[in-house]
Amino acid sequence: MSFFGKNIKKIRSVKGLSQQAFADIFSLKRGTLGAYEEKRSEPKIDTIIKVANYFSISIDDILTKNITVNQLLSFNEIITTDINQVVKASFTDIPFVNSLNSKMFIDDFKTTESYQSLPLIRMPVTANAPLLAFTVQDLFMVSNEEGLFPGDVVVGESTIADDLIKGDVVTVLANDTLFIRRYNTTDTGYHLLADHINIAPINIPYGTDIHFWKVSYVFLKQYPKFNSKLENQLNQLNTELKRLSLK
């Protein structure tokens, strides 16, 4: 006798499925499923294939091995009881540029367009495009004491200019320099803006060799200020309304 009946009973338990719910998925009768689980009957090969494929289990495993609960949970890419798998599923190793290795990365990337020269930093992020982590090294993206400060880490997804919109914060590699700016364009080229009012825009003509990483995540070194500009404006408005009502 195969392990099929015992394994599907365990699958049902782990997935929280009744016999009827499980049977319905594979167009089986509940009694037929019960016969499999009680080892009174063996399934047809097409049923074995359907169940194995549905739960991403090899046919050999479902027929010849006593599948453990941890194995069943690990077939789900998110839920697992193995702490090592939890860490692996929740974190991504990201190439990391800082003040010490930025020149080496720039020189290497110009010819290889790879991240192989970079160390990796593990962060709780996911993305659909290659990621690059970059340490903020100046105050150019600070306005009214808010923004990106030295030591903050931004994580950007590799992208092209056509997929960017005005105002996107991007890490940019151009003219042998890696920097962070706010994306904009003119008729003649890219118009990359700092948030700091005293820092002039960087203008780069179209046709220049340039690479963009759209910033999707930010990890702050300092404790953030949670009061928004809108909240401050509303507070000022409320104060003014109270003052007027007293007149």
Score class of each variant (00 low, 15 high):
residue 1 M to A: 11
residue 1 M to R: 09
residue 3 F to G: 06
residue 4 F to I: 05
residue 4 F to D: 00
residue 7 N to P: 07
residue 9 K to L: 14
residue 11 I to Q: 04
residue 16 G to Q: 07
residue 16 G to K: 08
residue 17 L to S: 07
residue 19 Q to Y: 11
residue 20 Q to S: 11
residue 21 A to R: 12
residue 23 A to R: 04
residue 24 D to L: 02
residue 25 I to C: 07
residue 26 F to C: 10
residue 28 L to W: 03
residue 28 L to V: 06
residue 30 R to H: 06
residue 30 R to S: 11
residue 36 Y to C: 04
residue 43 P to N: 09
residue 44 K to W: 10
residue 45 I to W: 12
residue 48 I to Y: 11
residue 48 I to V: 15
residue 53 N to F: 08
residue 68 T to Y: 13
residue 69 V to S: 12
residue 71 Q to C: 12
residue 73 L to I: 06
residue 74 S to A: 14
residue 75 F to W: 11
residue 75 F to R: 11
residue 76 N to F: 02
residue 77 E to Y: 03
residue 77 E to F: 00
residue 77 E to W: 03
residue 78 I to K: 01
residue 86 V to Y: 05
residue 87 V to P: 07
residue 92 T to S: 13
residue 97 V to I: 15
residue 98 N to T: 10
residue 99 S to I: 08
residue 101 N to Y: 14
residue 102 S to K: 14
residue 102 S to Y: 11
residue 106 I to Y: 08
residue 106 I to R: 05
residue 108 D to K: 03
residue 110 K to L: 14
residue 111 T to I: 15
residue 115 Y to I: 08
residue 115 Y to L: 09
residue 116 Q to E: 14
residue 122 R to C: 13
residue 123 M to Y: 13
residue 127 A to E: 09
residue 127 A to L: 05
residue 128 N to S: 15
residue 128 N to H: 14
residue 128 N to T: 15
residue 135 T to Q: 13
residue 135 T to Y: 03
residue 142 V to P: 02
residue 142 V to D: 03
residue 145 E to A: 05
residue 147 G to D: 00
residue 148 L to A: 01
residue 149 F to M: 01
residue 149 F to W: 06
residue 151 G to Y: 00
residue 152 D to H: 01
residue 152 D to F: 04
residue 154 V to I: 08
residue 154 V to F: 01
residue 156 G to A: 01
residue 157 E to T: 06
residue 159 T to L: 04
residue 164 L to M: 07
residue 164 L to C: 04
residue 167 G to N: 03
residue 170 V to D: 06
residue 170 V to I: 10
residue 172 V to G: 00
residue 174 A to K: 03
residue 177 T to F: 12
residue 178 L to Y: 07
residue 179 F to M: 10
residue 181 R to Y: 08
residue 181 R to D: 05
residue 182 R to I: 06
residue 184 N to L: 05
residue 189 G to C: 06
residue 199 I to E: 10
residue 208 T to H: 12
residue 213 W to H: 12
residue 214 K to R: 15
residue 216 S to H: 08
residue 219 F to S: 04
residue 220 L to A: 13
residue 221 K to A: 13
residue 223 Y to F: 15
residue 227 N to P: 04
residue 227 N to D: 02
residue 230 L to W: 00
residue 234 L to R: 09
residue 236 Q to A: 15
residue 237 L to Q: 11
residue 241 L to S: 03
residue 242 K to R: 10
residue 242 K to G: 07
residue 243 R to G: 02
residue 243 R to M: 13
residue 243 R to V: 02
residue 245 S to P: 00
residue 246 L to M: 12
residue 247 K to C: 14
residue 247 K to L: 13
